[in-house]
Computed example of a mutant assay.
Amino acid sequence: MQNQGTIDFRGKLPSSEALIHTLVNSYMLSASLFGCVEVDLFSHLDETSGTAISELADACQLSAAQVQKLVSFGLSVGLIIERDEKFFSSSDAQKLLSRHSTDNICSAIEHHSRHVYPLFGQLAESLKSGKPISDRLHLSSAQSDTNEFYAELDKSEKDFNVFMTAMNTFSTGAGTRIADALSARVGSATPLRILDLGGGGGQVSIEIAQAIPQAQITMIDLEKATRFARAEVGRKGLSDRISCLSGDIFARLPLTEADFDVVLISAVLGDWSHDYQVKLLANTHYYLKPGGCLAVSETLLDDDLAGPILPALMSLYVQILTEGGQNFSARSLVALLSGNRFDHIEVQLNRAHGCRDTVLASKASG
């Protein structure tokens, strides 16, 4: 996603009293934005060229006084513009916060509001115990023999679909970047068999298939996720090139050894403990052809672990949700791959484009 999470707090914002107070109050900023999106304030602003408070109140089914409070918030952060007592969305708000925009991130915001925001209120508890907030997870056997992670979060089918749509939103652009990297490394003129382990809602596989016409992709995830992904693939007209299969990515799947040119692991490794990472990489090595390419997509920390802000926040997020998950630095990810029979490792940082970083490696012999 363009410019996602690319604010450089260390380089562009002063370490000052004002910044500290902004951080203290930032949960209220987020909640206010969530409220605006929940009542579709920006969608209604987008429907007409200039909207009065009374018109917004009717559209949002709120009182004029309540809408004025939301509009005041939007004005204060520059997301709403006022001219002659008529109100307009800023261009970025119109693009990202109106459901009428094809680039909107409303499902991602809804996911944060419903699912992530409440969990972060228990971050200190998780840090003190060293455990995830397991009472919000419904794992069938203490996570030792099951890999039911996101798919068995305590959500209705509707909530799960919100979650999967949000994951696809967060993944927008990552598949295109991976495809560019793969084309430069292994070429795209000849047919490529690609295995996507933990492909979630299918966004990354879809983008790769669109960018590399010769690619045939097998995507593996839990049944709930693959049902969602299969529908997304069908809507894109790619069902003949992307197969969405249910399975446990940490177990040995009924796939032929050394049958794939590329194995993709996108936003998965950092969610799990070291033992699970080793299992997944061993399976990856098994599925790859000799000299085949592993593509890992993660949002990487700097080697000094001092930022950027997005992967630092994601490390705290996986602290709440998983046992032992933590975001990688480029150095630590390279060490993990080289220690698990991969070589010729190449790191591509995609921060300027706002999407996850890409790391490519080759299957080493032996």
Rank of each mutant, 00 (worst) to 15 (best):
E223T: 13
A59Q: 11
N340Y: 13
T22G: 11
D248A: 09
G247S: 06
R341N: 08
K12H: 15
N25L: 09
V268D: 02
K279L: 10
A251F: 08
L123G: 01
V71C: 02
Q216R: 12
L321V: 07
A251Q: 08
L123Q: 03
R227T: 04
S188M: 01
S134I: 09
I133L: 15
L75M: 11
R227M: 09
L288C: 10
Q214K: 15
Q122F: 15
Y27M: 14
F160V: 02
P213T: 01
E82K: 14
G199P: 05
S129I: 06
E125I: 02
D180N: 15
V296T: 00
Q203V: 12
R331T: 13
P290T: 00
N327M: 15
H138Y: 11
S365N: 11
L280K: 02
L19V: 07
A295K: 01
K363A: 09
M219H: 06
F170P: 02
S43Q: 08
C293Y: 05
A189G: 09
R185N: 04
V263D: 01
E232Q: 15
L13V: 14
N168T: 03
L255N: 00
S171K: 04
A93K: 06
H100W: 04
G78R: 05
F87S: 00
D145S: 07
A184H: 11
W272F: 15
R235L: 07
H44Y: 12
L13Q: 13
E148C: 15
D240A: 14
T48P: 03
L360C: 04
L269F: 07
V347G: 01
N283P: 09
L222H: 08
E346N: 13
D40S: 13
L301Q: 09
H112W: 11
A151L: 10
A65W: 14
E47K: 13
L70H: 10
V347D: 00
A124P: 05
S205G: 03
Q4E: 13
